[in-house]
Design a protein around this nucleic acid. Structure first.
Length: 564
DNA sequence: TAAATTGGCGCC
DNA sequence: AAAGGGCGCCAATTTA
């Protein structure tokens, strides 16, 4: 049937340790050592799931040898998710730590996170400094983890979550390997067009220097536009008081320096964040290969390491061009937040609105906002983000009248946060505890030790400032929606990956609710269909039996910038 | 002098 | 008119 094997790379050399696993996760045969990890996997196509310490440690080696696996179980990722579910977030998550806890031994701290170095696109191949765990430890931790799934609030959902995020780990490694097609020549031409030529001695390109000159001329003295303090001072001398140099504040000021200043800031950003040095650092052989970290944010959204892959400015997307004869299928999930809110709150009205593939906000506005789509959208996003002022509040009242369960769902999450309780996504990813709350979670599980996670020390101290309490409420309010959307996205990616397995198409980019698949032109139609199917399938698997649809806007293009 | 923080802005 | 969630990255400034 579905065979499961545990696998570990030997610390030295190419060898591997392996063991077949029984239904309860314990070894079903002797541990064996084989001299070639890649061959060990390649020669066992019947294995349906590989259990290993860390996907990032093992899978790049397999991919480099052209070997893919169907499924895996990432023990360290699962440890992190289980610790969260148990209200123990912040305890070390390494397999070595989990093994130490099982034996009541001293628990080693986690190694610090690695940051990708510019230029070293193969950072995934560099072994991470980890505390080694013996193979018997890995086996024991895995078997124990299976039991721990049974003790959380929703065991079935938790099993789905750990399996899905493990699938995400496979996708992440495969996307890193494939890379986003990137035309350096197009990028360079774009930079020259926007920024002007570079001067020989370095420094700002021509267009930036010109704009800096215009700003200075308008303010009557030399100003460095990239220094907020200098800008505020110069405006002050010109009789304009600024609290900051943020764009929205500048845009309200009537002064001839504003326009060139805003233009400067926009171009400066492109120059520093996605300019010539970025190109030299991150694009190699026509591909941009960021390192993806599934579950890199507390809410479960992915992050990337190096190159700012999730913040590629729209104007730069012209450099993302499919290979000759190939296309990019660019697909965006439509109105994901309200659809997810409908599914998790089970609000009948909102589920009905979200039960169609056409524009949700239009339907919403027809129901509760006399056809005003913008108001409908603002009200819903305001509810999800915890907006505290503006039009949002009046519109929120209308939303609450028509969709009481949906609004109550996020209100309850906000209340939980304000009271220092934990909240969870639909599949069971848990919010980090409020630092300073010190309480065990609602399941009444004790918290070991007095050390809180070091992150955010000093924020959210109850009783210190009500502003922090409210901020905590906004965070948990958003967490349940954003995080459940991330749950869905994992299942969507897993489903899409499965459908693409028989094609030449490759997933090359993922950004929260958007995917890019690079494929031969003749496969584009099938890929588009696969994406659409993956969206709805993920909706069914993640959220169960609801009428909510998860449609995509998909475009087949040669350049990323031509989508939407 | 190196590490941590700040301001700003890109994306969702 | 002004404001609400999550990030990463850069340059400058402050802190240790």
């Amino acid at each position: 049937m579905s065979e499961r094997w545990a696998l570990a790379a030997e610390e030295e050399g190419d060898g591997a340790l392996l063991a077949p696993l029984g239904p309860d996760g314990t070894p079903a045969g002797p541990v064996r050592r084989e001299p070639d990890l890649v061959a060990a996997v390649r020669d066992r196509p019947e294995v349906a799931r590989w259990v290993w310490r860390s996907t990032a440690e093992v899978y790049p080696r397999l991919l480099a040898a052209g070997v893919r696996v169907e499924r895996c179980y990432d023990v360290e990722d699962a440890e992190q998710l289980l610790l969260g579910a148990e209200g123990r977030l912040g305890e070390p998550r390494s397999a070595a730590a989990a093994w130490a806890r099982l034996r009541n031994g001293p628990v080693p701290p986690d190694p610090p996170p690695r940051t990708a170095e510019p230029g070293s696109q193969d950072s995934l191949f560099e072994p991470r400094r980890v505390t080694p765990v013996p193979f018997e430890g890995l086996l024991a931790v895995y078997a124990e983890q299976l039991h721990r799934h049974d003790r959380v609030g929703h065991p079935g959902r938790m099993r789905l979550l750990t399996a899905a995020e493990s699938a995400g780990m496979l996708v992440a490694a495969e996307m890193h390997r494939a890379g986003l097609p990137w035309r350096a020549d197009v990028h360079r031409a774009l930079l020259t067009e926007l920024l002007g030529e570079r001067y020989a001695g370095g420094g700002e390109p021509r267009r930036l220097a010109e704009l800096a000159g215009e700003v200075s001329a308008a303010l009557g003295r030399r100003v460095r536009p990239d220094l907020p303090a200098d800008v505020v001072k110069a405006f002050g001398q010109a009789g304009v008081r600024l609290g900051s140099t943020r764009r929205w504040e500048l845009a309200r000021v009537d002064h001839p320096a504003v326009e060139p200043l805003i233009a400067y800031k926009k171009l400066y950003r492109i120059w520093t964040a996605h300019g010539w040095s970025w190109l030299a650092d991150w694009v190699r052989d026509g591909r941009f290969r960021p390192e993806y970290l599934p579950g890199g944010t507390v809410s479960g959204r992915w992050t990337t390491n190096g190159g700012g892959a999730l913040q590629i400015p729209k104007v730069i997307r012209r450099a993302v061009v499919a290979d000759e004869g190939w296309r990019l299928v660019v697909a965006d999930a439509d109105q994901m937040e309200p659809r997810v809110l409908a599914a998790i709150s089970r609000d009948p009205g909102l589920m009905e609105v979200a039960g169609h593939p056409d524009d949700l906000y239009t339907r919403l506005s027809a129901r509760a906002f006399s056809g005003d789509r913008e108001h409908a959208k603002l009200a819903l996003l305001g509810a999800v983000y915890g907006q505290t002022s503006g039009d949002g509040l009046k519109n929120l009242a209308a939303l609450r009248r028509r969709f009481p369960l949906a609004v109550a769902y996020v209100d309850d999450a906000a209340k939980a946060g304000e009271e220092g309780r934990l909240v969870r996504t639909w599949l069971g990813r848990t919010s980090p505890p409020a630092v300073g709350s010190g309480d065990a979670d609602e399941a009444g599980l004790p918290q070991e030790g007095g050390d809180e996670p070091v992150a955010d020390e000093g924020e959210f101290v109850p009783g210190y400032a009500s502003g922090n309490t409210r901020a905590r409420g906004r965070f948990t309010r958003n967490f349940v929606v954003q995080g459940s959307a991330a749950d869905w996205a994992l299942l969507m990616l897993a489903a899409l990956r499965r459908s693409l397995a028989g094609m030449r198409a490759e997933l090359v980019f993922f950004q929260h609710d958007e995917v890019i698949v690079h494929c031969p032109a003749e496969e584009a139609e099938a890929v588009t269909e696969a994406v659409r199917a993956a969206g709805d399938e993920a909706g069914r698997i993640t959220f169960g039996d609801t009428p909510v649809r998860f449609p995509f806007t998909a475009a087949t293009v040669e350049r990323y910038s031509d989508a939407k």
